[in-house]
Amino acid sequence: MHSDGQKAPLALKLAAGAGILFLHLPILLIFVYAFTTEEKSYQWPPPGFTTRWLGVAWDRPDVWSALGLSLKVASIATLIALVLGTLAAAAVSRSRFFGREAVSLLVILPIALPGIVTGIALRSAFNLAEIPFSFWTIVLGHATFCVVVVYNNAVARMRRTSGSLIEASYDLGADGFQTFRYVILPNIGTALLAGGMLAFALSFDEVIVTTFTAGQQQTLPIWMLEELVRPRQRPVTNVVAMVVVLVTLLPILAAYWLTRDGDTVAGSGK
């Protein structure tokens, strides 16, 4: 009997379905709360529905400045991560050398160790070196742990790209830069794009390391954290939470679409 013909046992179907619901229902709940008329508590069921809070949140300058800072940090951190991740991936996938394993370990380490370790390590280093906290200290932290997602995507793609393509390009008279521009880049382009999007999503959402490396600046996650610890205006938080879900949804789906055949994107972990 072939396994393709087998039907899943009912209990397994129910358990898997329940698990998927468990993963998604809480996020869907955010969408309902964004439109509730209740201001002071998390009352369920909502006493009524209104779109008023969308306008209130729109008019909040603190939300806009936090969003702006998050976008700026994520863009620059992603650019740095793209450069460093691609370089490391090229070195590791194209040749064997002493300490190759150590390089991949070093790239993965910032994300394998608990975020709080990375955060406090950076903070104490900034303190020791007497570097004041600024926009750039946030970027520094973010870029450090974003390298790994670009690296993972690029390495996976470079492994699948045949080395003979590059040799053929040399044989046909292209120099190293032309080969990179016309042969390597088109091959790894979508993987880099996917890695960059995930790096962007990772940075846009990061809070643990940021709490240690930010001074007075508020990124959007820091703003959310403040609201979670000391709620001031719950309806605005609800709306911001909904927008964050929608904004992060797009790059994730796009990254999945770009790398869907073959290599995995997110199994590498956060």
Binding site: P26, W44, A201, D205, M224, L228, A241, V245, I252, K270
Partner: peptide, 21 residues
């Protein structure tokens, strides 16, 4: 997609959702 979407969606939003629940 059903597993990777929650993996990559905002950590704080997920916690916030549970505060509501």
């Amino acid at each position: 997609v059903a597993v990777t979407l929650p993996l990559w969606s905002s950590y704080l939003v997920k916690i916030y959702a549970w505060k509501l629940i």
